[in-house]
Structures are given as structure tokens and as C-alpha cells.
Simulated assay, not measured.
Amino acid sequence: MTGMTSSARPLLNRRLAEFGTTIFAEMSALALSTGAINLGQGFPDTDGPEEIREAAVRALRDGRGNQYPPGPGVPELRTAITAHQQRRYGLGYDPDTEVLVTAGATEAIAAALLALVEPGDEVIALEPYYDSYAACIAMAGGRRVPVTLRAHEDEGCFRLDLDELRDAVTDRTRLLLINTPHNPTGTVLTREELAAIAELAVERDLLVVTDEVYEHLVFDDAEHVPLATFPGMRERTVSISSSGKTFSFTGWKVGWVTGTAELVTAVRSAKQFLTYVASGPFQYAVAEALRLPDSYFEEFRADMRAKRDLLAGGLEQAGFRVFRPAGTYFITTDIRPLGESDGLAFCRSLPERCGVVAIPNAVFYDHKETGAPYVRFAFCKRIEVLANAAERLRKAFAH
């Protein structure tokens, strides 16, 4: 059999031609090769609550979930998810028909877009966006339409322009993909902004997929309010969350979808041909995690807020312009005060310059030039690691 020639048909599906190795793989490899502190990829460097880890061990030993779990997820977890939604947000869901457990939020997003988007449909997403959004829209044959969150330096945050969002909607728009709390900017959409999005969705009869994985990581005066709580939204919203960010077990890959029976059935139709099922024993453990007392969530937020403030202070002392996040565990910075403007080149050189790894925000933009000067740091690490990273950055850049 002869090898492929340069004129042969490309192996990779053209819908995925723009997506190569992710920036996370590249930066994590740099961290390993240089021994740098990895503040790039968003995963904690400590495990979550011991009692939840033991719940997973108990499930394994008791033979619960070692074989295929039910397609929608184990009943204990589906019941715990509905109780969580009711207790936190006053949202009532039927655990048998309106909840679907997925292999993390990433699969939930993929299944939702594959199920609900026809080839040629437009999907509006808030830019910068998590890189899987673009790939999943492409796999569904949709056309992504970015609406950019703009930096407001005087306020130290990024904001949504509601007029720009309205103008982006056309007769071909099928779906809004909304992420709040927002990765990577740390923006938490306000009640007023969410109400305007809801009114637009109802007026233009749009479906909405919401990525709410950082729902329990909001700081200061910010408040997470699910879009599904607004008038006319429950029947058109697929709400997505997961356990990884809240309980610091990102490797377990336990996520979920809530929505009407019709929407959940549609998403399940796609999901069953992706992983089918996953994370059997961990589902039982996450069911217990969702029933932890309010004190757990309050202490978790307080711990992350302290870590945010430590790293943000170090970055400011090093000379970065810092956009202190209202949510998530990421800090976006502007490198132009350092005399830099190319975030990708900056991040590729950073491990050698000072032994720290970060992520260039440009990879989350269609408008690369808009994201070029911004760099993201993760603060979901141990205090001593963050302090060490902050000191390295200060030594490298402070004058």
C-alpha cells in the first residue's frame, strides 16, 4: 500500500481542520519540560473532601457502578441534582425525565449542540470562549457567531454589550451558548443582563444552552442566577453543570444536564452515542457531595477568594494589569503594561523567563487581535504554590 501524496484527500474532517493540539497540551508539556509552576490548565493540585473520596471507594467495594450504570445516570445522583436545583434556585425538575448525567460538562456541551443544531444554524457564543465550544459547534455543522465581552479597564472587568448581542441575532440563529460565571474572563452576568438575554431568547424563539460549571465559585457581591429561572426560559434552556470544579475531583468527569423532558431526551439521543455511560462509582459519590452542608460551599468560596487575592496582588506587583474575577478560578491579565503585546509569544517564553506557565487568551477568540494582549492564570492551587509563582513573576517583571 502506497503512502498518501500531497494531493491526497486530507485525513481530518474539514469541520475540524482548524483544531489541532490544544493550547493546554502545549503549555502543560512546557511545564513538564522546564519544571515550571503550571498555572495554565484549570485543575486543583489537591483533592476534594475526604468523605467524598471515601464514598467513591465504598461504591467500588460495594459493587455499585462497576458495570454500566443506567443511561440517564444512577437514580441517587439524579435525585441529588434535582434537590440541589430546587434548594439553590427554586428550579423543580423530574429526576426521571428532566436530568441526564454526562461525562463531565464537556460531553454535555457536545451532546447538546449535536442534538439541537442543524448544519448551517448559527450559534451565538460569548467571546472569549472555552475552546471546546468552537469544536462542538463545528462538529454539529453549525456556524459560530462570537459576541465579544469587552474589557472595561476603569472597572477592572469584562462586560457584555447587550446591543451587540441583539444585533448578532439573525433569522438563521438557532441557539445562544451562555457561560456564566465566565471562563476565562471571570465575569458573572448580572440579573439585569440575564433578564435581557431571556427577553431576547423568548422574543426570537431561541434555544439556550448554559454552561454553569463555576456556579459555586462566585466572589464578593456577585451572584450566580441560572437563566432557566427567568420567565419563559425553563422550556427553552438546557442547563449544564458538573462536579469537578465544585468538589475538586476533575478526573471523575461527572457532569449533568437539566431541562424539560423534551430537551433532555434530545440531548440524550446524542449523548448515548458518545460515551453511552461513564463514571459509575463516582456518580454515587457525587450524589453525596451535592448533599454537603452549606458550610462546605461557603468555606470553598472563601478559600478560593483568598487564593484569588494572593495571586492577583502578586500579578499587580509584577506590573500586570489585573482583571480581578467575580467568579471562576481564573485571572485574566493585560500584558501591555509590561511592554508586551503578543500573549502567545509571551506564554511560550514565560516558563524559561521565570518558571511559570499561563495560557494566552487569544486561543479563546475568533478575533485573535482582540485577545492578543491578555493572559490567563489559574489560582486553584495550594497557597504556597501561588506564593512561589507570584514571587517568581515579581522578580522577573517588577521594576
Rank of each mutant, 00 (worst) to 15 (best):
A289H: 05
L32R: 15
Q86G: 02
I137V: 11
G65R: 12
A387Y: 05
Y89Q: 12
P72G: 06
T185A: 11
E51C: 12
R236D: 01
T106R: 11
A112E: 05
P119V: 06
K381N: 11
G73P: 09
F300S: 05
S248E: 08
G3S: 08
R143M: 10
T190E: 11
R382P: 03
L165M: 14
P70V: 08
A112L: 02
T148E: 14
G313P: 08
R268G: 13
A261I: 05
I383E: 15
L39M: 12
A261E: 11
L386C: 11
G92H: 13
P373K: 01
L32P: 01
L292C: 05
R87L: 06
R174E: 06
F282M: 07
S243N: 05
T246C: 09
R394S: 00
F282L: 08
L393W: 11
Q272H: 03
L177N: 03
Y296E: 02
A358M: 00
T370S: 03
G156S: 09
V322W: 09
E18L: 13
A105W: 05
Y68T: 10
D303A: 11
C354D: 01
G156R: 08
G313T: 10
K381F: 14
Y365D: 00
A326V: 01
L177H: 14
L162G: 04
R305Y: 09
L344H: 00
A358V: 00
R143D: 10
A378R: 01
T250C: 13
V213W: 13
N38K: 04
G48A: 07
S241R: 03
V254H: 03
V257Y: 07
L12S: 13
D366P: 01
T22D: 10
R144C: 10
A138D: 08
H84P: 04
V99Q: 07
A110W: 11
M233W: 08
L207W: 09
A312T: 01
K253F: 06
F377Q: 01
L386F: 08
E107W: 12
V123H: 15
E155H: 12
R308A: 04
T332R: 04
A29W: 08
L116C: 07
V145D: 08
F219S: 13
E107K: 13
P181S: 04
A135L: 14
G251A: 09
A396Y: 00
P293T: 02
R61E: 04
F320I: 00
A285D: 02
F219G: 06
A135N: 08
R143K: 11
I178E: 10
P95R: 09
N179T: 04
D131K: 14
R321E: 01
D161G: 02
